[in-house]
């Protein structure tokens, strides 16, 4: 945000990569990609690639972090140094710390952790390639990894970004759109009852536009949900 461009991001209803405003990029999903993890998944939306690994439920140390009546969820969102044009120094940044927090809050409501007191479920998300909407791609991967790991869930978690470019409301922002958009809004939700677990926004929108974009996301998210279900079932087919 804050960057302005002379270039038009939408010409005759088509975005810079040829998509329609309510069209998602090409999606690729795989589970069981990390043999050492209890569960794992790799998800690609266009050129954004995220890989998630789940370890647990497992013992939680230090002991004072343990909760006697429930397990806890720990998350880490991290961008690989080579994931962007200008190399990122390894290690947590303020941005990745905030994304780690909102990712955890996006996934936690989906899990039944009361059945695993004193334990921890660790979810690690690595962004291997960044081309916009990395946190939602990470959440989609984490949701698959958690199901793959056999952590009990009330529903899968679906995540998608929305926004506004050249006065047009869109979903699934790629990197360039992310940089020049008038607004960027990542959302995550539990699809069965359309309950929202992540909602952030920066930019400039009327409250009507906010609501319209959320509705676009809830609708388009169905496609992501179908893909997630398909890839989980596929793991057990030959």
């Amino acid at each position: 945000m804050g960057m302005k461009t002379e270039e038009k991001l939408i010409i005759k209803g088509k975005r810079i990569d040829g998509r329609k405003p309510d069209e998602i990029r090409e999606i690729e999903m795989k589970v069981g990609v990390i043999p050492n993890a209890n569960g794992s998944a790799q998800v690609r939306f266009g050129n954004t690639i995220a890989i998630a690994g789940v370890y647990g439920p497992r013992p939680l140390y230090p002991k004072h972090l343990q909760k006697s009546d429930t397990g806890i969820l720990q998350c880490r969102y991290n961008m690989a140094p080579f994931s962007v044009d200008e190399r990122i120094s390894p290690g947590p940044s303020r941005r990745s710390t905030e994304i780690t927090k909102v990712t955890r809050l996006a996934l936690e409501p989906a899990l039944f952790l009361e059945e695993y007191p004193e334990t921890v479920v660790d979810v690690y998300i690595e962004i291997l390639q960044a081309d916009g909407s990395t946190r939602v791609t990470g959440i989609n991967a984490a949701s698959l990894a958690l199901a793959d790991a056999g952590v009990p869930m009330r529903d899968l978690v679906v995540a998608l970004s929305g926004g506004k470019i050249d006065d047009t409301m869109i979903i699934d922002l790629c990197g360039k759109e992310d940089n020049y958009s008038e607004a960027d809004m990542p959302v995550a939700f539990l699809p069965r009852r359309k309950e929202i677990t992540l909602l952030q926004m920066d930019g400039m929108l009327t409250s009507e536009e906010v609501k319209h974009i959320i509705k676009m996301i809830l609708k388009a998210g169905e496609k992501i949900y179908e893909k997630q279900k398909e890839v989980l079932r596929k793991k057990y087919k030959e």
Partner: peptide
């Protein structure tokens, strides 16, 4: 002018579209 320039959901529970509408208003 009542436009929204930033939003952040917090807390560990889920909210519905209707909740969001009420909270924004």
């Amino acid at each position: 002018d009542e436009k929204i320039c930033a939003m952040q959901k917090g807390g560990t529970d889920r909210i519905s579209f209707d909740d969001i509408e009420k909270m924004i208003n």
